[in-house]
């Protein structure tokens, strides 16, 4: 069974040959290539080469065309700060006043050189893997993007105290997000990962989410011409899982802090789970710990399909040793074969 069929089977709540492994490897490619993060992302060809290499090396079941979250800010004319040991960050906010929101114009996706690199990488990867491996593209949700556009504190004030400008910014961000997602789908992405950390109850309380981020997601996802995965980037999902399902998304990236038994029960046959290995702790995992975590995850959430094993943040940190990723891959192949054995999950 190839990766595409394996993932699609699990998405349809059926049991494929084994539990799919979707390690979300993005800047980790720089480590594999032994170049700086900045140099790695300067050429789309690097991403193509390393995604194909990492797919084979870790028996990964997906290609991940995510460069870095701040690329959308870069496309909007903002500054991006590269660091040697972490993901590129957005710099000074591009929106500082209400007037800036009024003046803000979304970039033209297909003419933008930064987004163009992602589209070229996607197209090339699609030509290489065809329908053998799913390609996951990425957008920031219109609701979470302003954390980078204007800074967290100012944005929270906008949400609570300035509904008119909040609505205006959402309208513009939604238009951009839909265009950006659909361009990636046209270039060959199989599905779009909709990163929406702000919608986690860790960040915003559910009643405010229902009035804001939930409505934004419903409008936006409805206009994306393909499958979507909502990812809360380490934030808990369980208290809002019903609301997230109502946005029309097919996959949920959940947290290592979510209760595995409960989230599987709630998700069963309704939404496919993507997660939830702790990428921060992974930095110092040894082999017995890797096996324990993989066995626990498969035992509690693997039955009946509907599980894609991944980290819980949407990006494997550079600091995670290659050995750990190889051991994760080995453990998934060892313990993830369907039909699952009852005693394989013993901790």
């Amino acid at each position: 069974m190839n990766s595409f069929d394996r993932v699609m089977s699990s998405l349809s709540f059926k049991e494929p040959d084994r539990v799919p492994l979707c390690l979300l490897l993005s800047l980790y490619g720089a480590k594999e290539m032994n170049v700086s993060v900045k140099e790695y992302f300067s050429k789309w060809e690097n991403i193509v080469e390393m995604q194909l290499k990492m797919k084979e090396k870790y028996s990964n079941d997906c290609i991940y065309t995510f460069f870095y979250a701040a690329i959308e800010i870069e496309a909007m004319g903002g500054e991006v700060i590269f660091s040697p040991d972490g993901p590129p960050n957005s710099g000074e906010p591009i929106i500082k006043t209400n007037k800036d929101i009024e003046r803000f114009e979304i970039p033209k996706v297909k003419e933008n050189k930064h987004l163009g690199k992602v589209l070229k990488a996607t197209k090339e990867l699609k030509s290489k893997v065809g329908n053998e491996v799913p390609i996951i593209g990425v957008v920031m949700s219109p609701y979470s993007l302003p954390v980078m556009q204007m800074g967290f504190e100012k944005y929270l004030n906008l949400i609570y105290f300035n509904p008119n400008h909040f609505d205006l910014l959402m309208k513009k961000n939604e238009e951009f997000c839909v265009q950006w997602a659909n361009a990636q789908l046209e270039a060959g992405a199989t599905a779009i990962c909709y990163f929406d950390p702000l919608s986690s109850p860790n960040i915003i309380e559910p009643h405010t989410y229902l009035e804001t981020g939930h409505k934004v997601a419903k409008r936006t996802l409805g206009k994306i011409n393909g499958a979507t995965a909502t990812h809360l980037a380490s934030g808990i999902a369980l208290p809002v899982i019903d609301d997230i399902i109502k946005t029309g998304t097919q996959v949920l990236g959940f947290s290592s802090s979510d209760d595995l038994d409960m989230i599987k029960r709630e998700a069963k046959d309704r939404i496919c789970l993507l997660g939830n290995l702790n990428g921060i702790e992974m930095v110092h995992w040894d082999k017995p710990k890797v096996e324990k975590e993989i066995k626990k995850l498969i035992k509690k959430a693997g039955k009946g399909g509907g599980l894609l094993i991944s980290d819980n943040h949407g990006e494997i940190p550079l600091q995670v040793p290659e050995r750990v990723l190889l051991e994760i891959s080995e453990a998934v192949r060892k313990y993830g074969k369907y039909p699952l054995k009852e005693d394989d999950g013993n901790e």
Binding site: L156, Y160, P201, N202, I203, E205, P239
Partner: peptide, 11 residues
């Protein structure tokens, strides 16, 4: 306990 959001703590 996960009952209060970061936004509520900040505000």
């Amino acid at each position: 306990k996960g009952e209060v959001s970061l936004a509520q703590v900040y505000m």
